[in-house]
Design a protein around this nucleic acid. Structure first.
Length: 454
DNA sequence: GCATGATCATGC
DNA sequence: GCATGATCATGC
């Protein structure tokens, strides 16, 4: 029998922990032992539960899992999760045989004692302390999405492609890599290919939402699915696709008329705003998209089924790339975690853009870990060498990867103008750059239904 | 026609 | 003032 046997006992004891520096409770020297130590510290030294590998929640009688989790304040002063919340390792050999209710994730994490602590930059973690103590169980509408996420992960195991699982496949519940390094491999049941070891996790974007809305505040955003019964016979993504599909072939002006938007008023990214309107939202913010960290991108197809422009992303800092490895690079993290919603418009014979529909997408595992990795590594090499950055005929040029060098991506300027510069490791200044997805690569990723001849 | 470098426009 | 999403302009 555990000492803290009810939720009430647990929460009361947890409340007493708030504000106490971790070094003051560390009677066993756990902090010195390394990663994951804070959860272990609280479990052992504060609640007296020995660390174990029991598949059941830490508080067995109360059926509650203890989770300490770091947060930070962003530039705007908002609380944001520092990282995803990692749960159990996914045992590919066993997990596919289970139901969601008996999965290792749900069995352990259906109810959690969340203990967020601020992770302060340049301060030793022994001075950190728990900021809040909250008992958390998933809202019904989140559970509907998490259940589908789980199904997606399992279906890749059942298809014998566990090695192609990516965190970007899913919305709230992810499968993140876990292990000493990327060579930690495991067997899978329907293929001889070894797959990277992965663990169930709640995505960083989801944890940020929990922190901002359930723990520290109560910001309300518009929901796409206002009632969970709307997802009775379809997934969230299917619901979105079907809804947008109802306005197939509407021109931008026609859509503006439908939603009473001033056609002449300059609005940034009107095409995506119209898609949000179709989904029943007034703003271009949806609770589900924020939780899932979904990135909405508009794609314009020409009448002859080509795409003119490549797709840009945020600018990078030369020195950041120079100091990172691929595994901890912003680019790898971004494309492995991020799910996209493409809103697809296509020019008709008269050059008028018409809505064709939408498509959820994330970068396939091999495109990221083989192709994009090459682009990143060449970029790093060119930045470190530094010699190729030069001016020819008054134009800045360099040996950074170009459009035809790689089928997935390239590097190009992304700045206000050529005077908007960033410092290279050798001290030279050069226009800010970003990674781009090649226009022809994007085209290759689009559903064939968008490319049909009219 | 397309690749590449440069720049625009909104919105916070 | 700047990030972001997007598009323009030149020259081969």
């Amino acid at each position: 029998m555990q000492q803290y046997a009810t939720k009430k006992d647990i929460l009361e004891r947890a409340q007493e922990l708030i504000g106490i520096p971790f070094k003051n409770i560390d009677t066993k020297g756990i902090l010195a032992s390394g990663k994951g130590a804070i959860g272990n510290l609280i479990q052992e030294c504060w609640f007296g539960i020995p660390v174990n590998s029991d598949p059941r929640p830490d508080f067995v009688e109360a059926d509650v899992e203890l989770k300490a989790h770091p947060f930070r304040y962003n530039r705007n002063g908002q609380v944001v999760a520092k990282e995803r919340l990692v749960c159990d390792i996914i045992n590919y050999m066993e997990e596919y045989n289970k139901t969601f209710e008996t999965s290792a994730f749900y069995l352990k994490c259906h109810d959690m004692l969340l203990l967020p602590y601020e992770d302060k930059i340049n301060i030793s973690k022994e001075y950190f302390s728990i900021a809040k103590a909250v008992l958390f169980s998933f809202p019904e509408e989140d559970l509907a999405i998490i259940r589908d996420d789980w199904g997606k992960i399992i279906s890749k195991i059942k298809s014998g492609i566990a090695e192609q699982i990516s965190e970007g496949d899913t919305l709230y519940l992810g499968a993140c890599t876990k292990g000493a390094n990327s060579s930690s491999l495991r067997k899978q049941p329907f293929s001889y290919v070894l797959a990277k070891q992965r663990a169930y996790c709640l995505k960083t974007s989801y944890m940020t939402y929990i922190l901002q809305n359930y723990i520290f505040g109560n910001i309300k955003n518009e929901k796409i699915v206002s009632d969970v019964s709307m997802l009775k016979d379809k997934t969230f993504e299917e619901y979105v696709v079907e809804k947008i599909d109802k306005y197939k072939n509407y021109s931008i002006d026609e859509l503006c008329d439908c939603f009473k938007i001033d056609k002449k008023k300059p609005i940034k990214n009107k095409e995506s705003l119209l898609a949000f309107n179709i989904l029943g939202l007034k703003s271009n913010k949806a609770e589900e998209f924020i939780k899932a960290g979904i990135n909405v991108k508009t794609i314009r197809l020409n009448a002859n089924n080509t795409i003119t422009e490549s797709m840009s992303f945020r600018t990078f800092k030369f020195k950041e790339i120079a100091n990172q490895t691929w595994e901890d690079s912003d680019l790898q993290n971004y494309f492995s975690e991020t799910r996209f919603l493409f809103i697809v418009y296509k020019q008709d014979g008269n050059g008028i853009l018409r809505l064709k529909g939408c498509q959820f997408w994330n970068m396939p595992y091999n495109d990221l870990e083989i192709e994009m990795k090459k682009v990143w590594e060449i970029t790093k090499k060119v930045i470190l060498e530094g010699a190729s950055f030069r001016k020819v005929d008054n134009k800045n040029t360099s040996d950074l990867p170009k459009l035809r060098d790689n089928k997935v991506g390239h590097v190009r300027p992304h700045a206000r103008n050529s005077n908007d510069v960033d410092e290279l490791p050798n001290g030279k200044m050069f226009p800010k750059q970003c990674f781009w997805l090649n226009n022809y690569y994007i085209l290759s990723q689009l559903n064939s239904t968008f490319k049909d001849k009219e």
